[in-house]
Design a protein around this nucleic acid. Structure first.
Lengths: 243, 243
DNA sequence: TGTACATCAGTGAACGCGCGTTCACTGATGTAC
DNA sequence: TGTACATCAGTGAACGCGCGTTCACTGATGTAC
């Protein structure tokens, strides 16, 4: 009847030549959209603009994405994946809880400053009129999960101390349970709560700096961030090995 | 020649009736814009929409604001002022460093959740195509300044301890100097740096929660935030009085 | 107090722009016999 | 291997919408003499 739409398309197990071309073009469209996002930001990302960059008719994109929102969803998921990969592949030369934490924290800030619009898309204001569907959740959860993993690793290696933050009262430890179940984590709740707080600290530090709230500037932003990242580690119980 | 534009208008010292009407209508326009902002968010805020809400011709607004960006600037400044007022007027029944800090921290989160779009405007992604002019800076600085004041007050009252965060290395204390001069503050640099970190922690906590990153939710978000706000206080050296 | 003139507020039409999405269509590619 | 048909990709025009901003204009309000 009408031409096939994206949502109805099911690729066969053994990809035909057509299907191969199709998925290549899908990637090409996502690439152009990603470039437009990096250039102009998500709010002004338009299907027509992407089509223009590709030299296609705007209507052609509807063969690949059901709507602008669906394209945006793909970009969001890709951004989470990219950030998560950056965090998970961050390692320290002297492997140890503290150094590992620092490497991950630096990777987070490095990723944000390399891709400011992507960071803003993930952690800035929600895009008006867009509601993130459920399928973004697994990718999004990989970020706090990556932080938790570092602490879990330190615990397993026997180099996780008590931390300097005050012990959480029952209401707080109970209140945070739902999100801990979703991660999930094997950490004691005190350490898990501390890690979530550290996630807030790091993302707050990055967002305030990236979005221009350190008026007058920092003369050595790297050093300031490093100190703060190190302080979060100490609060959780990760300390540099002094030998 | 042409009719007077906003930027050329200088009200006389003794306000004429016309000037009075003018400033009233200016407020009314800002009010309608603020309502539109609260309803739909800053990105989709439009002059035409505001004019529609007021039953005016779109062109009429140009008597009061030179452009959409200028209206947005006014809204941003008003939002900073509103938040700063909320923080500065937050007091605790038992006045003391720790209780005062907690009251201010709670006021910050309370304000954000009452006005999510305003919070997003101030601390979320920058609005594309809009560049905040210099005159927003003094209002913006009142927010970290309000936090610093609490700690300064505690120091003056002799109830500021050492804090639990590790001492900052010289690179970090030097790196943060420019912004400290802009605040300004009389705090020792270690405490000032700790307060800035606390600002990052609180704003990170609020933004992550407000923008929907605690997937699965927190069963007791108030308790979690309270614990985290209290922990930041302890790191700086503000502790509850135990007597 | 009255008159002449300047200033101002607000209107309505218009300009030029961009957007998401739909739809009938033309060829090209793949598939079944 | 060849033919008939179904499937798909991509086009181009169109719909309906909203936006910021400009401009000549009409009345009303204020001011100077």
């Amino acid at each position: 009847m009408f031409a096939t739409r994206y949502s109805e398309y099911v690729p066969s197990a053994s990809q035909s030549a057509r299907a191969r071309v199709r998925s290549e073009l899908t990637q090409e469209i996502k690439g152009a959209a990603s470039a437009a996002l990096a250039r102009d930001g998500a709010v002004v990302l338009s299907l027509r603009g992407v089509a223009r960059d590709l030299g296609m008719a705007p209507s052609a994109l509807y063969r690949y994405f059901a709507s602008r929102d669906e394209l945006l969803t793909e970009l969001i998921i890709d951004a989470y994946i990219s950030l998560a990969d950056a965090l998970e592949s961050a390692t320290a030369p002297r492997v140890g809880g503290f150094e590992h934490w620092m490497a991950v924290a630096r990777a987070m800030r490095g990723w944000a400053f390399e891709r400011p619009h992507e960071w803003a898309l993930l952690y800035g204001s929600p895009v008006p009129g867009y509601h993130a569907p459920e399928r973004t959740v697994p990718a999004a959860m990989r970020i706090p999960r990556a932080l938790v993993k570092v602490v879990e690793g330190a615990l397993a290696d026997g180099c996780l101390g008590d931390g300097t933050d005050p012990p959480a009262p029952p209401a707080a430890t109970a209140g945070v349970e739902p999100i801990l179940e979703g991660l999930p984590t094997t950490l004691p709740v005190q350490a898990a709560l501390g890690t979530l707080a550290a996630w807030e600290q790091l993302s707050g530090a990055i967002s305030l700096e990236l979005f221009g709230h350190f008026t007058g500037g920092l003369s050595d932003p790297d050093a300031v961030y490093d100190y703060i990242a190190g302080a979060t580690a100490a609060r959780i119980g990760l300390t540099p090995r002094v030998r």
